[in-house]
């Protein structure tokens, strides 16, 4: 059974290999004439001002945290969804309760304005 995963390993290796080969071809065929103006960060022609490692909106961070919760939730539901046929009423009700709890948390976030962008 594990032999079925060999093509995937080879495919990933080839994928990385192909990407590097393409980059290498680009480096080989393209010119290489760096100068100060060309190598500066692009800011529509102006000299750069300030640092680009700036602070970012905390909401991006919030979205990432919410993402982790829901993505775990999805990973948690995968095995449940497959065996849904054989776990009967008990399994179904258990997941329904879990989903309701999750929805309560989601409603709280919504109410608190964690999902607002303006």
């Amino acid at each position: 059974m594990l032999a079925e995963y060999l093509p995937i390993l080879i495919f990933l290796t080839l994928g990385v290999g192909l990407s590097f080969v393409l980059l290498f071809v680009g480096l080989l065929l393209g010119p290489h004439k760096p100068d100060d103006a060309k190598n500066s960060p692009y800011e529509c022609g102006f000299d750069e001002f300030g640092n680009s490692r700036m602070r970012f909106d905390v909401r991006y961070y919030l979205v990432a945290i919410l993402f982790i919760i829901f993505d775990l939730e999805i990973a948690f539901m995968f095995p449940w969804a497959i065996v849904l046929d054989s776990i009967g009423t008990q399994g179904f009700v258990a997941m329904a309760i879990f989903l309701v709890l999750l929805t309560v948390g989601f409603a709280y976030e919504w109410k608190k304005g964690a999902l607002e962008w303006d």
């Binding site: 680009g26 480096l27 065929l29 393209g30 004439k33 760096p34 060309k38 190598n39 500066s40 960060p41």
Partner: peptide, 12 residues
């Protein structure tokens, strides 16, 4: 065209 273009590495 893309192959023949320079790959620029920004200084920073």
């Amino acid at each position: 065209k893309l192959m023949l273009k320079e790959i620029i590495f920004p200084a920073q």
